[in-house]
Simulated scan of single mutants.
Amino acid sequence: MKKGESKVSTYPNVEETKQLIKELVSIPSPSGNTNRVISFVESYLNELHVQTKRNRKGGLIATLPGKNEDEHRMLTAHVDTLGAMVKEIKTNGRLRLDLIGGFRYNSIEGEYCEIETASGDIITGTILMHQTSVHVYKNAGEAERNQVNMEVRIDAKAESAEDVRNLGIEVGDFVSFDPRVQLTENGFIKSRHLDDKASVGILLQLIKRIKDEDIILPYTTHFLISNNEEIGYGGNSNITPETVEYLAVDMGAMGDGQSTDEYTVSICVKDSSGPYHYGLRKHLVELATKHDIGYKLDIYPFYGSDASAAIRAGYDIVHGLIGPGIDSSHAFERTHESSIMQTENLLYQYIQSPLVSY
């Protein structure tokens, strides 16, 4: 098989992985409010009898003991997503937002959303331009999509700030976006928040496969399910002193000039933080070539990962980044089951392989 081509895998759990991803994206979890999805992952791993612990930031660490307990590996994926907070309760009974994560207002225009109050009540709404009605606003199409012009229309009788506060809504309440997840018959998964819940689903299924096949890994391996990646520091702590290799599993970014596609695993060679470890990159390519795994090498120009966050935090580790190719990142995302399978298969080979030289 030529470099970069995709070969359909017969791995038996791809449908389970897709359903797991569907469950994950359906759980609201904007950065800063991730307890519910972390509890879901925790329960999943506890059913597999995998040792887990939470860190103080609210993330989850799962550990699979290996033959070598002196040198460790760590893999990470993040369950936190883009979202928003209530910035202001407007006098017209609508809400002004402050964004969580790096995306643009135009990507959420017209989206259904949920506001979670401090008491835990959920109130639905829609994110709209203030000047939406073309019958009223002459500049409806030209007005800038920004914090001033966009607002949340609450699904309740709320015509004043007092009405809104009587519903229990207050400044600082979290706002999550409807994922609108769909699994198509020809293998596509389209949904918000595939960044990075597609990778979380892949890691959970990888752990399940290791347990089902009674594989003893060559090195003790930790899996960090981080919960602050979208705001920059999800994976920069709780790395054991024994950890030698640290691999982030996160989306491959697609667009003009990019090699990444929706059908292969993307191996990142460089992002905004600089090059990833050359030896680990070559090792991943060798594994993909040896095991007929479709892959693409790529550079993500406006991107940072939990692996690069760990490097910035000062950890002396070999770091890398791979993941499924995701179209329209931080907006209306989509990938294909082939990319999920290729990523899962590369990880399966990687965690059973020797450490790279450094």
Rank of each mutant, 00 (worst) to 15 (best):
G58Q: 05
C268A: 13
V14N: 08
I61P: 01
I115V: 10
A77Q: 13
S6N: 14
K22L: 04
R153I: 09
A62L: 01
V41F: 10
S266D: 08
S328V: 07
V134P: 12
T76W: 00
V164Q: 05
M251Q: 06
D155M: 15
A248W: 05
D271R: 04
A158F: 02
N166I: 07
D70H: 15
S119H: 06
D121S: 15
Q182V: 02
A309C: 09
M129F: 07
R180H: 07
T17C: 03
E71K: 15
A156Y: 06
I27H: 00
I267F: 00
R334H: 08
N35I: 10
M254W: 10
N166P: 01
S273E: 09
N92K: 02
T91W: 13
H336G: 01
E42Y: 14
E159S: 14
E114I: 01
E229T: 01
N139D: 06
T264S: 06
F302A: 12
V152A: 02
Y348I: 02
R104E: 10
E229F: 03
P65G: 13
K67G: 10
A118T: 08
L297S: 03
Y112M: 11
E159A: 12
D298A: 07
F188A: 02
T52N: 00
L24D: 02
G83W: 00
E114F: 04
H291P: 05
E337S: 10
K270S: 09
I169F: 14
R165P: 04
E114Q: 11
A248G: 08
I239Y: 04
Y105D: 01
E69C: 03
A118E: 09
A84M: 14
N236R: 08
S26N: 10
Q51M: 11
I127D: 03
E47D: 11
K282M: 09
L217Y: 01
R192M: 03
Q342L: 08
T184C: 02
L347H: 01
G141C: 07
S29R: 05
E111L: 15
E337F: 07
L75V: 00
A143S: 10
Q19C: 08
D70F: 13
V25S: 09
V318S: 13
N13Q: 13
M150S: 12
E337I: 15
Y11L: 12
Y358V: 12
G232M: 05
Y246Q: 11
V41C: 13
I27P: 01
S6A: 15
A143D: 09
F177N: 11
I154F: 06
V200A: 06
E242Y: 13
N35Q: 15
D298W: 07
N92Y: 07
N35C: 11
V249W: 11
F177I: 13
N46H: 04
E5F: 14
D306H: 01
S191L: 03
S107E: 05
L247F: 04
L347Q: 00
E47R: 08
R165G: 07
T132K: 08
I322F: 01
G234I: 00
T124F: 09
H78K: 15
K157H: 11
G32T: 08
E344H: 04
Q182L: 14
D163Y: 11
Y350S: 11
N238V: 07
A156S: 10
T243W: 02
